[in-house]
Amino acid sequence: MNQDIILEVKDLSVSFYTDNRKNNAIRNVSFVAQRGKTLCIVGESGCGKSVSASAILRLLPELSRIENGEIKYYGREEPINIEKVDPDGDLIREIRGGEIAMIFQDPMTALNPVYTVGYQISEMLLEHNKDMKKDEAMKKSVELLSAMGIPQADQRVNEYPHQFSGGMRQRAMIAMAMSCNPKILLADEPTTALDVTVQAQIFELMDNLKKDYDAAIVLITHDMGVVTELADNVSVMYMGYVVEDGTVDEVLRTPAHPYTKALLASIPILGRGRNQKIEPIRGSTPDPFNRPPGCQFEPRCDYATEKCREAMPEREFISGEHNVRCYCYKEVLKDE
């Protein structure tokens, strides 16, 4: 067993039950997070990337169920099977925030508007450090805020979320997430709502956290540019499946799944000017209640064969960590 692995998700499936229908939100998803490394989960909207993150913290909505699979957390002496933990129990409350922290996409809805920012950060500190005093917690909150680059943190700490700008709110969220030195940081599209210059600031912060605290970062995004700049490992998701997984070099340089390849060909790249050719992916993502019977990408895929119409391919390892769910990956690799 690799010592660096802190979280291992194996064959995880989650379904939502609504309107007498079942939505297979994620199916047999596997990935690992390592200490001091960033794992990026990429995919389009509705592919199940946020569901995977919520499942790790057991924050799934009521009408959903973990059908099978394991979420193993190696942060303590004994590994913990998170999928078996009571979602309202004491153990998960210790882990949430204390050991695995999460940053949400929209900082305005994630912060409580009727409490000051300082109160919300120290609440987290007091919850996870039983012998900490209130004024100590407040002092720590100020330190955290100024470490995140918020000017006049000693005054700002007593302000409410609406007095903060978007970038500052997200920084307050990160301060809160980092307050207990978590071993894993789950970031669900942390910068999608922010401008690029502010996004650059947030990424710089996250990079420092990785280096200084040896935290594992799981970053959920739809932006291939972000993946290229921040990721050590990448998992590409499509319609609830991880279709390709590997190090950033393997996946971006030698994409083995037709979807990854098509996705990379469909985005304009800065600095290549007007003469670059971008190839759209034909069709659109299928309705989750009316899925293709076989490989989920088959209707849009250029490599599709008869076999692809029958069943979703199993994971196949190409080399080391690089694995793919595709019958035709050898042809895809040959076309590079």
Binding site: G225, V248, I269
Partner: peptide
């Protein structure tokens, strides 16, 4: 600064990132 802040989906793209202070 704006150009340097944009994440580019190209592994061979190397650049200095200029991080602006503060907000608009």
């Amino acid at each position: 600064a704006l150009l340097s802040a944009i994440p580019v989906a190209d592994l061979d793209h190397k650049k200095e990132r200029i991080v602006l202070e503060g907000d608009v």
